[in-house]
Design a protein around this nucleic acid. Structure first.
Lengths: 199, 199
DNA sequence: CAACAAAATGAACAGATTGTTCAATTTTGT
DNA sequence: ACAAAATTGAACAATCTGTTCATTTTGTTG
């Protein structure tokens, strides 16, 4: 009974990995169920025993990706006490995000490229936007000093962060998560300098 | 002779506008050439007299969009002398971008959504990334003070800006371009404050 | 109006892909 | 050996694609 499930799971996984492999070289739009079956060396009908269609397949992989990232982030964050300063905590969250993303970078690189599916960058931002918001709102003076709508600030900062991630994965991880964190902090500091001079 | 061209142009435009109309309600993937012909009330064969396929159609609309935005930005920017401070110039560029984007917001809203085509946000960023870079590098002390690779800084700032644009068009332009510029400046100032406290 | 050119139509075509069905086969469990 | 679950292979109608070509409509010119 349990080996039946195991076999089922294994085939499903085979289909997923085969699909991702094709996705490296072909656009999602251009991939057919026949392509996937051929790559996985299974019957085309078998595909339909595991997924409704290729959209369902991609959806499930995407959901798994977000769930996995969420788990990794929560686990990494739980290792740190939150008695640090507000800024240290922001830095810590950044480090956690970069570490989690590194592990899933092969998939993220594809999903964020033009081989993926439209709107992924929005769903990805939404997936970790809530964690960022909670972290920011820990700080009491934050909401008091913030003069712009929270949704705009969140869009700004999560999108900025996504920009770094996109450059990073396109560069095939040319830096360590710690270096990326430093780079992030440096950019924030640099923006500070620019404006300080103005005033 | 020239009226033949005019008629040709008009039909091509009809196909484009009809397509965009469908795109508001359906995913690009799910739209067929038959759908477009039906909406435009033309023969399906006529479509192929003007475009290779639906991908070609979308590509051309995208190219036109970028060209139009580029022209608007250049024109708006040419109305201002560049004798202001570095920061004022950055603010001016932001105002210009928001103004140009407002005009093209209906199309941008669709293209940035999950009804569009994968990778649009990257191509969009690339389209105005160069203008931002040139504007930044005007300032001599900029390159001297910047401690991070230019490509990362550009990814960060253009992506952050895109985040504001995305929120703006999703909110159906709930603010004026000038208000968006102020909002942008406010966020930069806010980040400055946060870090100033730390030091 | 007549003659011509360009654009659009309608219909047909083969080819590819989709999602479903079902009997036969293989793999695994008891 | 027998039963259960998973997979296979083949066939099916349906849809969409891109192309072709004869015909019709629209616009131009003399």
């Amino acid at each position: 009974m349990s080996i039946y499930k195991e076999k089922n799971r294994k085939t499903k996984e085979l289909i997923q990995t085969s699909f991702i492999k094709i996705l490296e070289n072909k656009t999602f739009e251009s991939i057919t169920v026949g392509d996937i079956a051929k790559q996985a060396q299974i019957n085309r009908g078998t595909f339909y025993l595991h997924f409704i269609d290729k959209f369902d397949l991609l959806d499930q992989i995407e959901q798994q990706l977000f769930a996995d990232l969420g788990n990794r982030i929560d686990e990494l964050q739980s290792n740190y006490s939150s008695t640090h300063t507000f800024e240290k905590e922001q830095e810590q969250l950044a480090a956690t995000l970069f570490s989690a993303i590194k592990i899933q970078s092969p998939l993220l690189k594809i999903f964020l490229s033009d081989h993926g599916r439209a709107g992924f960058h929005l769903r990805f931002r939404a997936a970790f936007s809530e964690k960022v918001r909670l972290n920011l709102e820990k700080n009491e003076s934050f909401k008091a000093t913030l003069e712009v709508p929270m949704e705009y600030f969140l869009s700004f900062i999560t999108s900025a962060f996504l920009g770094l991630i996109e450059q990073w994965v396109q560069n095939d991880l040319d830096k360590t998560p710690q270096e990326m964190t430093t780079l992030y902090i440096n950019i924030i500091s640099f923006i500070q300098q620019t404006n300080t001079k103005k005033v």
